[in-house]
Amino acid sequence: NLFRIAGDISHLVSILILLQTIEKGKTTSGISLKTQILYVVVFVTRYLDLLTTYVSLYNSLMKIFFIASSVYVVWLMTSKYNKKFKEDQDVFPVKYLVGGSFVMSLLFHYKFTFSEILWSFSLWLEAVCILPQLFLLQKTGEAKAITTHYIFALGLYRALYIPNWFYRYYSENRLDLLSVSAGLLQTTIYSDFFYVYYQKVLKNWGFNLP
């Protein structure tokens, strides 16, 4: 359905914006390494089913892309552009995010199996793993516009999944309560940022008016 496609494209675009930003500026300043490492954990734990279940070529390719690109970004940040990397401001206590997500996955899952627990863990972790990035944004005060575009596209992706879940509930009679709950949490975390982004974009348009 349309929402799902739009969501996936938005997710894809967010990563392309991020890669473009890093390659063009030859710097990773303003981007939280912690958030990017958490994304590697999110994608690897969620897409373990690549090895066991085949959904579609589209599905597999997207999963491979998300795993590969997240690993690539972390490599860019730690190796290639390491010299310009300042980590002193990226100090969000990530252990609480990981610990909290793990507890949530033990409490809420469809089956008590290794892969299902990890899948649930990845949902909760994804919901909160932008926090170090938002924290860094707040601490440095200003961000390059492009970084905010990245966060916006990333937030939009899960927000678009919400109407997708409504759609699937009515058209396929299918309800994934775990995805919906974690998705709502994720969108809530982004909502403050969305508001600021919206204000900023509006303002910029205002300035550009003749």
């Binding site: 959904v55 997207m62 997708n164 509930y169 009679n173 994934d176 995805s179």
Partner: peptide, 10 residues
């Protein structure tokens, strides 16, 4: 309502 079996979303 069907519960999600198999995760076909990203």
């Amino acid at each position: 309502v069907k519960e999600a079996d198999g995760h076909d979303e990203l």
